[in-house]
Simulated assay, not measured.
Amino acid sequence: MAKKQERKTWLQRLGLWLLRLSGWKPVFNLPDTPKFIAIGYPHTSNWDFFPALFWGWASGLPFKWIGKKELFPPVFGRVMLWLGGIPVDRQHSRGFVGQVADYLKKLDRGVVVIAPDGTRKRAPYWRTGFYYMALEAGVPIVLGYINYKTREVGAGDWFIPSGDLEADFARIRAFYEEKGMGLYPKNHSPIEPKPRSVTVVPGEAGAEVGE
């Protein structure tokens, strides 16, 4: 028997309408799991925010983002939490990666979105924190993308991290070489993991936000 399709919420309908209005095609190739890490790439312009936001609404998924705890002061911090923020303490013994992995383990349903290049400008490499978060928490990594040439935005593929960083990055690289196209292609960051000589050990204190 076919699974009954759930009725879309008003926010999903609004998101789909805004995507159509602005000329974007949403892509929803998502794992059948209640929670996962989602990569946001390429991110070369502030204009990326709008199609990404509309896609998030259209998906019906509870999206979360990460910020240092200083961004969550009393009163205003409640607003940040309501907007999906996850406060992390960079001095915590579990470090940035460990704290987010712990959060994912406790989460019933949701998506943690991370931009691994950490900037709209060209970076020399990707930070690998997102990979180790997913590996430790045992959740899939979704390859979220935006393509200004084809006007597509969304989730094009996903995989379970194997623990072989180089092999998994080769898969990620192959996907984005075909799918990703930022508004400013010259600002695409090379899809290479952070060099081993400067990689922060997962769970160590002092890991950077975005690491």
Rank of each mutant, 00 (worst) to 15 (best):
V142R: 06
V113M: 13
L107P: 01
D168S: 11
T119H: 11
Y176I: 12
R120A: 01
A174K: 15
G163W: 04
S189I: 02
Y132L: 03
R173D: 13
S197M: 08
D168H: 10
K105S: 13
T199F: 09
T119R: 13
V198K: 11
G163S: 05
Y125L: 08
P195V: 10
N187I: 04
R151I: 01
F159E: 10
A101C: 11
E166C: 05
H188D: 12
E178L: 14
R171N: 08
D89S: 00
I114V: 15
D157A: 15
S93N: 11
V97W: 13
L135N: 04
N187D: 14
K194A: 10
R171M: 09
V142N: 06
T128K: 07
M133Y: 04
D117M: 05
W126L: 12
G180C: 09
S189L: 00
L183N: 06
R94F: 09
V113P: 01
K179N: 07
P116F: 02
P190I: 06
D117K: 05
P140A: 05
M133A: 05
K105A: 10
Y125G: 09
K186M: 09
E166R: 13
G156R: 03
E166V: 13
L183Q: 14
V153S: 07
A155N: 02
M133R: 03
M181Y: 15
D117Y: 05
R151Y: 02
F175H: 12
V113D: 01
P161Q: 00
P190G: 06
Y131I: 00
E178Q: 15
G154N: 08
P124I: 09
V100A: 01
G180H: 08
V111Y: 01
Y184W: 09
R109C: 05
F96A: 00
V142L: 08
I146P: 00
D108R: 14
R120F: 03
G144W: 09
V153R: 07
K186I: 11
G110D: 07
A137F: 00
R109K: 15
V153Q: 07
Y184I: 14
D168I: 11
N187P: 01
T119G: 07
G180Q: 09
N187L: 08
V100R: 01
W158H: 15
S93L: 13
L104V: 04
Y184F: 14
I191K: 10
Y131L: 02
F169H: 06
L104W: 02
P193W: 10
H92V: 05
S162W: 02
D108E: 15
N187H: 14
N187F: 10
A134W: 08
Q91T: 13
L165N: 08
N187V: 02
A170L: 12
P185F: 03
E136N: 10
R173S: 12
G182V: 07
I146Y: 03
G182A: 10
D117H: 03
K105E: 13
E136D: 15
S197R: 14
F175S: 11
A101S: 14
T199K: 12
